[in-house]
Amino acid sequence: MLKTRIIPCLDVHDGRVVKGVNFINLVDAGDPVEQARVYDEQGADEICFLDITASSEDRDTLYNVVSQTAQQCFMPLTVGGGVRSIEDVRKLLIAGADKVSINTAAINRPELVSEASEKFGRQCIVVAIDAKHNQSDGYQIFTHGGRTSTGINAIDWAKRVVELGAGEILLTSMDRDGTGNGFDIGLTKKISESVSVPVIASGGVGNLDHMVEGIRDGMASAVLAASIFHFGKYSIAEAKKYMRNAGLNVRI
């Protein structure tokens, strides 16, 4: 039976982890490679790096981080943030990423999704969707960390990117992100039911019940969380045990 995936996400800035937890056995808490290794040991099902570096000249640092991680962690690695072209995707895959997440660039030029999936296979192309609730139109997608509205309906967009060749959707609720109040279950369920590909629920996890809800009620295939793991509130192993006790199929 296929297992529900738990994916810790690391925000990486200039090759350093932002808000990394100081695990007791870590030499350098800011080192993404070390953080990834700990999550690997704790039983994470995948790892996600989100590059939040503003300038594009620092991309080489990211490739280096990805490459070093891939040398030590033999588990799936998704990398996103600032991916603008086929060349960016190619470089990340060569460095050792298994999946590459595309966000704003897909909105600016949707053909990038089809070009990338035709070239590298749809299994490695993730489209990240940042959605916000809107009174008149249900959910809309936003860019620039939820500040810029695109006027595009989130469900229509999810269907469109899957048609274009996305192999997975990383769905973040901008209303919930950073609040710790739980996933936007309505949004997650709507998107999960609208597309044939797996959906990763993201944005808002504050406790382990939220993770259970994302899968059970939101019908997501995977849950992504950052701060509850980073700050050591829960370990991956604790999260998995909790989810298993709630009747979900997890890999332990």
């Binding site: 039976m1 297992k3 192999g167 295939s221």
Partner: peptide, 11 residues
């Protein structure tokens, strides 16, 4: 309603 691709850990 299973998802395609088959993506993740399986026995």
């Amino acid at each position: 309603k299973i998802k395609i691709p088959h993506m993740g850990w399986n026995n």
